[in-house]
Deep mutational scan, measured.
Amino acid sequence: KMTIRVKGKELARRIAKEMKDRNLKVEIHEHGDEVILEIE
């Protein structure tokens, strides 16, 4: 399990899509400006 902190929703969406393309499970937690992606 891996956690990534990202500034900006646009970048977070791009990373999430990339991870889904690799068949990984992604959970997205938004905290205002910061987005936390949990990847399994």
Rank of each mutant, 00 (worst) to 15 (best):
D21K: 15
L11R: 08
L24Q: 04
I39P: 00
R14Q: 10
R5L: 09
K20A: 12
E40R: 12
L24Y: 14
K17W: 05
E40D: 11
V26P: 01
N23H: 10
L24M: 11
L24P: 00
N23Q: 07
K9Q: 09
E34C: 13
M19Y: 13
K1Q: 06
E10L: 11
E30T: 09
D33E: 11
R22M: 10
L24S: 02
A12I: 02
R13P: 00
E27N: 11
I15N: 01
H31P: 02
L11N: 05
T3W: 14
M19S: 01
A12G: 08
L11V: 07
G8S: 15
K25W: 10
R22Y: 06
I28N: 01
R13Y: 15
T3V: 14
A16Y: 12
R14P: 00
H29Y: 14
E38L: 14
L37D: 01
H31R: 11
G32M: 05
I4S: 01
A16T: 04
E10H: 10
L24W: 14
I39S: 01
K7I: 11
R14F: 05
E38C: 12
I15Y: 04
I28S: 04
R5A: 04
I4R: 03
I15F: 06
E40H: 11
K7V: 09
R5F: 10
M19H: 03
E30P: 04
E38M: 14
L37F: 06
R14E: 05
R14I: 08
K1L: 08
E27P: 00
I28E: 03
H31K: 10
E27M: 14
I15T: 02
V35F: 15
H29V: 11
E27W: 14
K17D: 07
H29T: 12
E30Y: 15
E10T: 09
E27A: 12
K1I: 10
M2C: 14
M19K: 01
E10Q: 10
T3F: 15
D21V: 08
K1P: 08
L24K: 04
T3R: 13
N23M: 07
M2A: 05
E10F: 10
K25L: 09
V6Q: 01
M2S: 05
M19G: 01
R5S: 05
L11H: 05
T3H: 07
G8Y: 11
K20L: 13
I28G: 03
K20C: 13
I36K: 03
G32L: 07
I36N: 02
I4C: 13
M19D: 00
R22S: 04
G8A: 06
R14S: 05
K9D: 03
V6M: 07
L24A: 04
M19I: 05
K7N: 07
K7T: 08
R5Q: 04
T3E: 05
A12V: 02
E27C: 13
